[in-house]
Design a protein around this nucleic acid. Structure first.
Lengths: 126, 126
DNA sequence: CCTATATTTGCAACTAAGTTGCGTTAGCAA
DNA sequence: TTGCTAACGCAACTTAGTTGCAAATATAGG
């Protein structure tokens, strides 16, 4: 809800997402920015950026948290069900633009859905 | 791969899955069986039972591991993409029989997919 | 039924992701 | 420039899951 201040930390984080179009795991961010900022700051800034609709988060194959830039998702409402693809070889994760259709579930109201695809990406395919 | 021995631990675990048709989180199993067996044993036995196709596992909303009985999935090949539904109110998780169609992804080979739906279940709906 | 062998178990110590509390620092608006 | 509030760093903590090893136990073979 609160406005995101343009602090050094937020700038550095957003630069990382500017550089690569892929999603980035929190673990990777902590490794990369270790000398620049504390991991607590990273967790809190990412949380904020997600609240403000700048980033969206999801869980990778080990249950570790990943973040990616929001492109077509509107802030505060990430109801789009775009799947995430994680390469089992190189570990890279991308947001896919394909839409996964979630069927109506009898007797249940679906609020949110998460689709994680795992397989081999173009680079690792040989 | 190895045949599952009918040890006391394995029997107790399978009883839990017999009782409830829902999925059970490892955390819950550790709580419930705390006086009967060590958590290391639980982790290892579940691993084994999954290898042998008796149970299948997936990650819940916090990235915590859940297990459920395999009904129509053939051992060693859990290629069926049945979604899991987690109630955001009571936390219960069920395997759904609905099939989610995963679209073909250009330049990528999908080996495995995981669909987690979150919402309100029948009991919590009011 | 009894023994040999390989598998499973318990324990304790460990790893690592993520969180919390608090005193200090630094954006930003007036 | 000043003052308020949000953001930061640090250190300690929480907790899911793992590892190594010695002791216990299931199963097969006799």
């Amino acid at each position: 809800m609160g406005v995101v201040r343009k602090t050094k930390s937020v700038k550095l984080l957003l630069e990382e997402f500017e550089k690569s179009s892929s999603a980035i795991s929190v673990i990777t961010l902590i490794e990369r920015l270790d000398s620049e900022m504390n991991k607590t700051t990273i967790y809190r800034a990412l949380d904020k950026l997600e609240d403000d609709g700048v980033l969206h988060s999801f869980l990778g194959k080990n249950g570790h948290k990943w973040y990616a830039k929001c492109n077509n998702c509107s802030a505060h409402h990430h109801h789009d069900v775009h799947p995430h693809f994680q390469c089992v070889d190189c570990g890279k994760v991308d947001c896919l633009s394909e839409t996964v259709v979630i069927p109506e579930i009898p007797n249940r109201k679906v609020h949110f859905s998460q689709v994680l695809l795992q397989g081999t990406c173009e680079q690792c395919f040989n």
